[in-house]
Design a protein around this nucleic acid. Structure first.
Lengths: 336, 336
DNA sequence: AGAGTGAGTGGAAGCGCTTACACTCCAAGA
DNA sequence: TCTTGGAGTGTAAGCGCTTCCACTCACTCT
């Protein structure tokens, strides 16, 4: 393989084919007429020189990056990975590369986001990863933007999965078990989690119970573990509703360490239905969220915004499903 | 916020500050001398116009993308997500964006990889995701390349985690339990997995046993589940060594369905030590792989190649650790 | 006082493409 | 035979930067 180290440019192709660069461009992109013979000469030259158009040249001239960004808080844990998976798949189908940015533990997030915004045609941001003023700045700059799992933002699309109904179902189910002292593991986030807590609180209120204050913790197994030890050491709740599955797994671990049985001594529920939920001991009652679908929808919504197929922001909510397993108790009473 | 929709260019800044674009560039990048007063005027203009340099302009002129690529087979499952996490973190520290490409289910992988190669300063490829000739093409083009978990490739760095020693330890441990009929779940991949099988086979041979032929399956919970049902229906092995934790979880699921106890009726081991391994029922004996570290190392190695700090390929292997949990049996005999 | 120095600045040439526009033919229509 | 018109092509103007080079001025050294 003849490797001139520096890859060929359109000028070299043009020279070799004995035509102008305009003709090369037209032949390659199919814009404008090119005689069959000429095209053939061009293609031969392209092949001989192993020419691939410089992405930068193309982008600068055409004004588009053919790339999308996605900003998430953290890639650890299955939730974000699954969303990303769905996102990348669709983006790739649409001919767009995906540039990722994780904000976890990063100091200069606004700058990183700004930087990202300069290299994409549009971006997706998970709720609560980027300050509101920075989000507003992005919207204001005219860059197509889709938010995932966040309250509506003026000027941006929102893709979220259903929280209120499923949270209410979950709460009702636990009440059906006869549990009354219910604790919430995981603090407010002004997004998904908050919606769930509000909904759970409402159901409890309707049943004459005082909605509990959620206990903050990191949304990881470790966070759940620490909080679990705390919650299970004081006056013990009958059920602990966790912000997500990882927290729930941590709580179960804590219960085990304290010699408590789940669900015998305390019921535990999660949210997301990650792989480990099914394999946990006991298997985790949780709410299944269509994670990949969320990412796929975000990618499509963004594409519409970028291509201009749509120019008014839209908010879409995908349904979720309550998955009853062993961790909330073995013999649930029938509920309304 | 005054939003002219199209963001400002360096020309507008220059005009507003009453200087040339060269001076603006120098003032902003700190290359070359600029009078304090001039700098101030430039910075004021930058602020007023909310100027951010166009990434494309910068890249085209400077000849660098300030972006890295990473190609993986699939983002589902914790392994790749964790590696990606470590990779992105370091890349971001080094001022490089990360462009991802998942090959799973994609038809035109070579084209996608080529396309990716035109938008980055260097890339990382997981072993066995891209055809050898395409890898060779990348190397030949002079693009810095780091392979993860793959046999050495001429001209590319390799970052891998230790397989042989840990696999031997694992095999010895199982023999110490007294198991003799050992099955291998997961087919060859000419990479990591193959190394493990070879090593296990060798240990078995040394003990006078015939190395078993590995049974192919998808490296997912479902794949393990299907294979598990098959393996456990015939003449039952005493232990099933799985290619990774997900496969092992599937096998355990299959055992459960068939009314078999793990490890009572059959021992099961995994590899990776993903989160679910610890929470599985029974907890999974496995080999911990430093997944994030793998990604971080790849990012650093790639950076060295890109900056030219190093120009000869290097191969590094990170250590792994055997993690004994319940799934291989409760009272292991002491081993050598 | 004249030469030398270096800080500070602008002009302009790229980087590798896309594309508007102008131009040349040549065949078909009047 | 003289328009037309469109197919086929080239010229050149960007796209938004970086950076080489040349140039202008104070100054400092002999």
């Amino acid at each position: 393989m003849a490797n001139s180290d520096e890859s060929a440019t359109i000028y070299q192709v043009a020279q070799r084919a004995g035509v102008s660069i305009a003709t090369v461009s037209r032949a390659l992109r199919g814009t404008g007429p090119v005689a069959a013979k000429t095209r053939e000469r061009v293609l031969r030259a392209v092949e001989e020189l192993r020419f691939t158009p410089s992405r930068l040249g193309v982008s600068l001239a055409s004004g588009r990056h053919a790339a999308n960004g996605i900003v998430f808080p953290d890639l650890s844990g299955p939730y974000f990975a699954e969303v990303l998976l769905g996102y990348e798949e669709v983006a790739s189908e649409l001919g767009r590369s995906v540039i990722i940015l994780s904000t976890r533990g990063r100091a200069a997030v606004p700058d990183l986001v700004r930087d990202l915004s300069r290299r994409v045609d549009g971006m997706v941001i998970f709720g609560q990863t980027v300050r509101d003023d920075v989000v507003a700045e992005i919207v204001d700059s005219g860059l197509p933007l889709v938010m995932i799992a966040r309250d509506d933002v003026a000027g941006a699309d929102v893709v979220a999965s259903e929280n209120t109904v499923s949270a209410a179902r979950l709460a009702s189910h636990l009440l059906g078990h006869g549990y009354r002292r219910i604790a919430l593991a995981g603090g407010h986030d002004n997004g998904d989690i908050t919606q769930r807590w509000t909904s759970v609180g409402q159901v409890l209120s309707e049943h004459g119970l005082t909605p509990p204050e959620p206990s903050p913790c990191e949304f990881t197994v470790e966070g759940g573990h620490a909080l679990g030890r705390y919650l299970l050491s004081g006056p013990r709740p009958e059920a602990i509703v966790c912000a997500d599955d990882q927290v729930a797994l941590g709580v179960i671990l804590a219960a085990e360490e304290l010699g408590l049985s789940v669900p015998g001594d305390v019921a535990v529920t999660g949210w997301d239905d990650i792989m480990a939920a099914r394999h946990a001991r006991p298997a985790l009652t949780t709410v299944r969220q269509p994670m990949r679908d969320l990412g796929a929808r975000a990618a499509r919504a963004l594409d519409e915004l970028i291509t201009g197929a749509r120019d008014t922001p839209r908010s879409q909510v995908t349904p979720t499903e309550l998955v009853i397993r062993a961790s909330c108790g073995t013999h649930p009473l029938e509920e309304a």
